[in-house]
Design a binder for these strands. Structure first.
Length: 548
RNA sequence: GCGCCCGUAGCUCAAUCGGAUAGAGCAACAGCCUUCUAAGCUGUAGGUUACUGGUUCGAUUCCAGUCGGGCGCACCA
């Protein structure tokens, strides 16, 4: 529809010798302002030095349009041009939805292109805590959105099984193992205190008994801990139906000498230098960097920056059209250094998009608590799912924009689980299923009724038309959410769908054996609403219950 | 101190590239079940968009400053 308006407006512009402009369309907030509006007359006013309303009038009087599609055009306010779309247009959307089914809303905009989304990427030093949930849920929905606009998406998990964190894990497991023989064996202050470490130690004890006592090589402890933790992490992700198809181990960058090559490139291009026994990366103050950064320590080991830069170059070399990283705000500065490194070596960092989400504060009533992995009283993502349910977890994390702080009162979510906003949407779906079950009994012929021969004249009530109007917007809502990586827009939209459906349901009897043609028409609308809800649920990653 | 993000109804949050009377849910108040699911519907109340100035036809949105909060500021990741 917008495409059509764009075409006829541009034709009119040519006729009037107006400068060619990219025309913006908006959905007016109020119904009385029509279905689509444009501010183009106001933008032209400056260049043409005439009043916006005058320009708008001139445009309208010269505009040639299809009266079957557009029922009315008005000028309002400071010079908005408001288009009223005819009901017939919306009635035909019904056919479109019923024909497209699970594909309604899918766009082939990026067909043939590939995207890589990397997220979660927690090192296997312990379970995912509840705070990770935001990123897990967000990434899951964004990956779905990208697929809905045509990308072939790789879901990637980057981890590091070398490094200090993993050494610490090994030491922690070792200490717990040693405590089996000697309860006084010292446990480091900064070790991982959770009970799971003791369980890993017991597994090792059961297998190896005392044969590893007082050993100096902790690699077995590390390996066992890593496997144990990764199993648990994957199990947690599995509950949320998150499945990465690539697990990228940082160590592989060392093994195939990618890191060495990257370092050589920096040196060869004079972008790094040696000082105090370390290798430093020259950072550009013009880009806001305050000081140079170490990429290789005095010990000869790289800092995280070098492998991270090499890793991103690797992703670029894999040929993706779009590369997305999701980080918490605690990594808000470091990614800029990494992108700077990538760019300075001449790689196109523009195709790398970084999504930063703010932290989550969890409260249990009035008591707030920290998500430290080192504390033995961590609140894990699994605990959260146990407490409020998998769907509510996914929904709650995705229903807000990523760039705002999130206060999460678990006690509230627990106590009022029946009033959780997720139920409003799911209830609409369950209710629709109930209606269709009822129809199966009384008017089974609705299922086989031919879509092309539907009597659209029977669609008359305000509730029906408004519902169809909302349904017609689904594809553009998907596009907007996907292009901005903002799944919460889908939830706002689905709320609108559910709201309009509930109102429709309240005022329009659907299954009426006395009036089968009308019933069939309304049952088709219900089928379409159910389909849109289902498709939306699939994107945000929650289930579509048939009964509640 | 410096950098990034944020400040919207009692609470948690929306508001599309700068658009029209700033919207939802929860909490509060008043109604609606003999009828396809009342986890629903209808209505009422609730706001100087932290504050001050600027840019313009028009600002929650952009700019500057002030106040307040979160996160960073390692030869940890």
């Amino acid at each position: 529809m917008k495409k059509y308006l764009n075409t006829i407006l541009n034709e009119t512009f040519q006729k009037l010798n107006f400068p060619a402009k990219e025309i913006q369309f908006d959905k007016p907030k109020e119904e009385k302002f029509g279905d689509i509006s444009t501010n183009t007359a106001m933008l032209l006013a400056k260049e043409l030095k005439t009043s916006p309303r005058k320009i708008a009038e001139e445009i309208i009087s010269n505009l040639e349009y299809d009266k079957h599609l557009i029922s009315k055009i008005e000028i309002a306010g400071a010079g908005f041009i408001n288009f009223f779309i005819s009901d017939n247009f919306y009635k035909n959307v019904l056919k479109k939805i019923l024909e497209s089914e699970i594909d309604y809303g899918r766009l082939d905009l990026h067909n043939g292109q590939t995207a890589n989304l990397e997220w979660v990427s927690a090192n296997p030093t312990g379970l995912l805590h509840a705070g990770h949930g935001r990123q897990v849920a967000l990434g899951k929905a964004i990956a779905n959105l990208l697929e809905w606009i045509g990308y072939k998406v790789d879901r990637e998990y980057y981890y590091n099984d070398a490094g200090n964190q993993m050494e610490n894990l090994a030491k922690s497991v070792y200490a717990r193992y040693m405590q089996i023989f000697d309860p006084d064996f010292p446990f480091a202050d900064d070790g991982y205190a959770g009970d799971y470490i003791k369980q890993i130690a017991e597994i090792i004890y059961n297998e190896k008994k005392d044969s590893l006592k007082n050993s100096s090589d902790l690699s077995y402890f590390k390996k066992t801990g890593e496997q144990y933790n990764f199993e648990l992490i994957k199990k947690t992700l599995d509950r949320l139906n998150v499945h990465h198809n690539i697990f990228f181990n940082e160590t592989s960058l060392y093994e195939n000498s990618t890191i060495t090559k990257t370092l050589e490139e920096f040196k060869a291009k004079g972008l790094s230098y040696e000082e105090d026994g370390a290798v430093w990366l020259k950072m550009d103050p013009a880009e806001g960097f305050q000081k140079n950064k170490v990429i290789v320590k005095t010990s000869g080991e790289p800092t995280y920056r070098l492998p991270d830069i090499a890793y991103h170059i690797d992703k670029i070399n894999r040929g993706y059209d779009l590369i997305i990283d999701i980080f918490g705000s605690d990594h808000g500065d470091t990614y800029k250094e990494v992108l700077f490194g990538v760019r300075s070596l001449g790689y196109d960092s523009d195709k790398i998009k970084v999504i930063i989400h703010q932290m989550v504060t969890f409260k249990m009533g009035d008591e707030s608590f920290k998500m430290s992995k080192r504390s033995d009283k961590s609140y894990h993502l699994d605990d959260l799912m146990d407490d409020i349910g998998v769907d509510a977890t996914q929904f709650f994390f995705v229903m807000r924009g990523a760039n705002t702080h999130l206060d999460f009162d678990i006690a509230l979510a627990k106590d009022q689980s029946e009033k959780n906003p997720v139920y409003y949407l799911q209830y609409a779906h369950a209710r629709l299923c109930g209606i269709l079950r009822n129809a199966d009994e009384h008017i089974p012929e609705y299922k086989t009724a031919d879509i092309d021969n539907l009597n659209l004249e029977l669609i008359k009530t305000d509730e029906e038309i408004r519902l169809l109007k909302v349904l017609s917007r689904f594809p553009e809502e998907v596009l907007g959410a996907a292009e901005n990586y903002e799944p919460h827009r889908i939830i706002s939209y689905l709320n609108e769908v559910a709201e309009n459906f509930h109102r429709f349901y309240h005022n329009n009897r659907v299954v009426d054996p006395e009036n089968k043609p009308l019933s069939i028409s309304r049952l088709k609308i219900c089928t379409a609403v159910k389909q849109v809800l289902k498709n939306g649920f699939d994107i945000i990653g929650i289930s579509a219950p048939e009964r509640m």
